[in-house]
Amino acid sequence: MDCGMSLDRNTVAPGLAGQDRPAADSASDAGRGGRTSGRWGGPRCLRWTAAVIVGISGFGWWSREAGAQIASDVSRVGFVADVQAVVPETLFHLAVVVRLRDGWHTYWEHPGDSGAPPVIDVEAPDGFTVGAVRFPRPETFSTPEETTFGYAREAVFFIPVSAPVVLPSSPLRFRIRCTYLVCLGQCLIGEASGEVLLPPAAAGTTAARTAGPDGDLLDRHFRRLPQPIERLSGITLQREPGALIASGSTGGFTRMRFLPSEVSGVVIGDVHTTPGSEGRFTLRIQYEVRAQNLMPGTVPAIRGLLLLGDRPDDPAYQVHVPLPHPNQTKE
């Protein structure tokens, strides 16, 4: 199989390297034959050799009941970088790719009425700076009971990494561990860990981007990362007592929504969207700040995503408007 510049170039999993097979489940994989990659769609070349999924079922009397599903039955995890080598003083991304069986979904950083976001830890070589996980625009899952936000079929979580001025001459090893929740009627927690191995490149050079199916996958999801709200044409944000008014260009879209992020002590109420004249919209976000629920060190703010359109590839913008602390300022 010609995999081009696939994950096997830059990922290593001790004991699993070279095998083209889905991630294993530590609790139940013994004796289970390798399954074919691409079982749930996506590039067959994508090697999942880096991921080791650990079932959460536990031990002793908590152990998994016979026949009970675990996360690795319905999901697979891989790790990849968006570059083929690391150049000093440059920014690149590691990515956690979660593939899900049809119908299952995993969660955005602010999952909505239920669920939980993935927890991703990266152990990088000395001198590297690992940034906060970046989440692409989520989908909305609505039932009569609840609304949650996340990803079906495929989720890619990006971790920005800044390289130091001086790199060692040996390959650079990034260890990644991801805990994530998948749900479909029932919910399962998955754990996966693995490594991305990248060679160092000379300062001043340009590292080749990851190409082939993996590169296409990363590009597709990278385009879905929310942009700063300042990039929305004609945007204005105006705060009134108890409401934030956002106005901007519709960009030809007829539907706008606000997905609130959880900020302790800030209660987001109803959101009204009104398409205005001359291609502009107005979004009114009602809020209340409850001082007793602000966690120590939290700056009250309205945070969330302004979504134009309904499709995953439609634009998304980050909203972050600090609010006065209710104990300090009266509006």
Binding site: A116, E145, T148, Q292, N293
Partner: peptide, 19 residues
């Protein structure tokens, strides 16, 4: 007074019977 008196709950959705 109780502070915080609300923190967003995490976990699985409640698997309610159809309304």
């Amino acid at each position: 007074s109780v502070s915080p008196d609300y923190v967003r709950p995490w976990g699985c959705s409640v698997k309610y019977a159809s309304a």
